[in-house]
């Protein structure tokens, strides 16, 4: 939701990045204020997922230009774990399996690490168990999740719920949801979206990276951005998503090129 007294959370200016020498982002601009929900849409290969991984600090990508400020701080000065502690959360498109490590142990370490860095109290195993079970209700997760290894043998839907559970626990300032709707059936999508909606508030912001309009029926964005060839080429309100659904992406590119030519 757009608030009058919102704060500037994320400011991306002219971001360029490469992976293995190939240029993926070519001057991306984006401004996100607290309370807002943004959707970044675009065809495959437009650089959406790359952008979310760069914000989280994945080492496979090299930033070659531009700036990213997060709450007034240069994001690139922070190591990936420091970004997470500062409140940048990435819900992975493909959550990683960690065999042998119990989910409850992992969740508790994560929670306590982040809490400690925010100057808050850690929870002991019993307190944490109560805390996490409460959060799990939000996502209609069965308690046996806690006994299993992190994401190991989880279905697509279970993995995504586990991501949103972590978002619920860690209470991030900026949550980036990378293709969270992919691989979800309609019931799971509803549950996950419902969870995200309950977590959205006037102090945080959500950036959804998605291919389809489907998710946006459940999590209604304030802004919809269209990304193509490493840049945001069009920004609109939620109605833009419907237009994309019916007309596809091609017309946006054509329109953009025409506008660019006219400007020259």
């Amino acid at each position: 939701m757009i608030y009058q007294d919102s704060r500037l959370l994320l400011e991306v200016r002219g971001l360029c990045a490469t992976v293995n020498g190939t240029e993926i982002l070519k001057g991306l601009d984006l401004t996100v204020r607290s309370g807002e929900v943004h959707a970044i849409m675009g065809p495959n290969g437009s650089g959406k997922s790359t952008f979310s991984k760069i914000l989280a600090g994945h080492s496979a990508y090299e930033v070659t230009g531009g700036t990213v400020m997060f709450e007034g701080q240069n994001l690139f000065d922070l190591a990936p774990e420091e970004r997470a502690r500062a409140g940048v959360f990435l819900a992975f498109q493909y959550p990683i399996e960690i065999p042998g490590v119990g989910n409850s142990q992992f969740l508790r370490l994560t929670y306590n690490t982040v809490q400690t860095h925010r100057g808050k109290e850690e929870l002991d195993p019993l307190e944490f168990d109560d805390f996490v079970r409460e959060k799990m209700k939000l996502l209609e997760m069965s308690p046996d999740f806690l006994e299993r290894s992190v994401n190991e043998g989880f279905s697509g839907g279970e993995k995504k719920r586990n991501e949103i559970l972590q978002m619920a626990m860690l209470d991030p300032r900026l949550a980036i949801l990378d293709e969270t709707d992919s691989g979800l059936d309609i019931d799971a999508l509803r549950i996950v979206a419902n969870g995200v909606n309950q977590l959205a508030n006037k102090d945080n912001a959500i950036v959804m990276v998605t291919h389809y309009q489907r998710l946006l029926n459940y999590i209604v964005p304030d802004y919809v951005h269209v990304m193509e060839a490493g840049r945001i080429i069009k920004t609109g309100g939620k109605e833009l998503a419907f237009e994309l659904e019916t007309r596809g992406y091609d017309w946006v590119g054509v329109e953009h090129k025409a506008a660019t030519r006219a400007a020259v």
Partner: peptide, 19 residues
């Protein structure tokens, strides 16, 4: 795996030890 841990605030040392 280490990136996943890092994204949750856990540094490489603690992550390796846990794995």
């Amino acid at each position: 795996q280490l990136f996943y841990f890092a994204q949750r605030g856990i540094d490489a040392e603690a992550a390796v030890s846990m794995i």
